[in-house]
Design a protein around this nucleic acid. Structure first.
Lengths: 109, 109
DNA sequence: ACAGACAAGTTTGTGGTACAAACCTATCTG
DNA sequence: CAGATAGGTTTGTACCACAAACTTGTCTGT
């Protein structure tokens, strides 16, 4: 009945924080994709002010986590990279959001 | 009138995120100190489930940032390390909190 | 009174990662 | 056909979170 371990329910939301999402650059990316549901590389780069290189590697990481799909098309010889949130990504983002909300919820002021 | 640079007001709160606070372990520490206003090392260690080593280094970092005061007392030969939020720390935490709130504020669902 | 055992921290070592800079490949332009 | 530009990817590096080792001091038991 009594738990041996102090599990500290208070801080559980913080302990559980998804580090993939927690990184500010990726949080920006996800927050954007959460709304528009589809965007291309260049547009995202302008929106986030990330460099090409960094945007690229963050996108790879998000893809590896299964949070976004990366679709490479050609529009009359010009490459176009389209990004969209997966179901999994959407879910993870919602959970992250709820966790962060819980952290601050019961604080005064 | 028109701004040359795309400043992306939408994501400004994320760009401005305070990395000292953003780290989950330190967020936990600050969230706790925000409430109790004074705690000792051991108690904080139990609350956060951090090891002594990691707690120590996070506290050092918070102190270096001017966010907490570390007070080392002796209570009849036994050392006691007391932590409390500085005004600066309290302010920074509030700003961080507001930034995070802004990030999620205008999203659907 | 002195050999452990324990308590309360601090310092050191290391693997992972965010950011920047270099690189790549293809198209357009004079 | 020599740059310049566009759209990315890969590489290099400096930092930093976490774990493990170390430190300093107190409290036993014998």
């Amino acid at each position: 009945m009594s738990s041996k371990k102090k599990e500290n329910k208070d801080f559980q939301p913080i302990t559980d924080i998804d580090r993939i999402i927690h990184e500010p650059a990726r949080l920006m990316i996800l927050a954007f994709l959460y709304v528009v549901e589809r965007a291309d590389f260049i547009f995202l780069m302008r929106q986030t002010n990330l460099t090409k290189g960094n945007l690229s590697s963050h996108l790879s990481k998000l893809e590896a986590a299964g949070y976004i799909d990366i679709e490479k098309k050609f529009v009359s010889k010009i490459p176009r990279t389209l990004l969209r949130l997966t179901k999994r990504g959407r879910k993870a983002f919602q959970i992250y959001r709820q966790n962060m909300k819980n952290v601050f919820e019961n604080l005064p002021e």
